[in-house]
Simulated assay, not measured.
Amino acid sequence: MSKGNKEYKEAFGQHIKTLREERGWSQRQLEAVSDLEVSHISSIENGRYAVTLNTILSLAVALGKYPDELFKFDFNLRLNTDFKVQDRKRRSPGTTKALDGLAEGSFFTTPKRVNEVVHHLANEEKIVVQSSIVSAALKRLVDGKRLKRISSTEKKGMFLYQKRLK
């Protein structure tokens, strides 16, 4: 949605500019009436800033419009038409499956830090994932008695993960 979001901000900004120009005002004059800085107004009009509710209210009052009128402009907004949320499955990057494979193989024969696992997933498995996600998946493997968690001697609060001996 980031491309659509950018396009919407640009269309909104153009609408604000049109409303300002309809009054024959410069950005500086709108600044004086709205208490918004010119740089802020410029960022809005150029689609570089997503407005907040306070900004919308300031613009609406200054331009003599109700807030909803600021959103009445031509834009082909693609709306959700599939309301079966329970049927949607969030695609995971495959972290759990990849870690299951690593736990079965020889990767955890020697103790590994979370960041080593993250780097391995990124470089070897082509899965880019945050360390917090990896930590949660490693915890599940520890809880399932597939890996053991070892306190690090290098840094307090850091843990290493290693395959359990059977």
Rank of each mutant, 00 (worst) to 15 (best):
I16H: 13
K126Y: 12
W25Y: 00
V134W: 05
D35V: 06
D82H: 08
D74S: 10
F108R: 07
L160V: 04
S132F: 09
D68W: 10
L57N: 15
R164C: 09
R140A: 09
A122Q: 14
G64M: 11
F73S: 04
D100E: 14
G4H: 08
D68E: 15
S43D: 13
K112P: 08
E104D: 15
K156G: 03
L70A: 06
L19Q: 15
D100T: 12
E37W: 03
D35T: 09
E10A: 11
S2P: 01
R48T: 05
R88H: 06
A137S: 01
S43C: 09
I41W: 00
K65D: 08
D68P: 10
K97T: 11
S2Q: 12
V61T: 14
N123H: 08
K89L: 05
T109G: 09
E45F: 00
F107Y: 15
K166E: 15
V38K: 00
S42W: 01
R48P: 05
A98S: 02
E10G: 07
S151F: 05
D74Q: 04
I56E: 13
K156T: 13
V33T: 07
K9G: 07
F108M: 07
S34P: 12
L57M: 12
I56S: 03
L53E: 13
I127E: 03
F71K: 08
L79F: 09
T55D: 14
F107G: 12
R146W: 03
R91A: 06
L99D: 02
K84G: 04
T153C: 04
R90I: 10
N5M: 13
K17I: 06
D35Y: 05
S39W: 02
K163T: 08
A122C: 08
R23H: 09
P111H: 01
S26F: 00
N123W: 06
E31C: 03
R149C: 10
I56M: 14
E21I: 02
R91Y: 04
K148L: 05
L63A: 03
E125N: 05
E69G: 11
L121N: 01
S34F: 00
T95N: 04
V129Q: 00
E31K: 01
K17P: 07
Y8G: 02
Q14W: 10
S58C: 15
H119D: 15
D35K: 13
T109K: 14
E154P: 02
T55S: 15
K148Q: 10
L19W: 02
L138K: 02
T81Q: 08
A62T: 05
A137N: 02
P67D: 05
K126T: 09
H40K: 12
A122Y: 10
G94N: 01
K65M: 12
G94M: 03
T81F: 09
D100Y: 14
Y161M: 04
G144C: 05
L141V: 04
K166H: 14
R140T: 12
E37T: 08
Y66N: 15
A136V: 05
L59V: 11
F107S: 11
K155W: 12
L77I: 10
F159C: 03
K65R: 15
G13I: 03
S34K: 07
W25S: 00
N76C: 06
T18V: 12
K89W: 02
L121C: 03
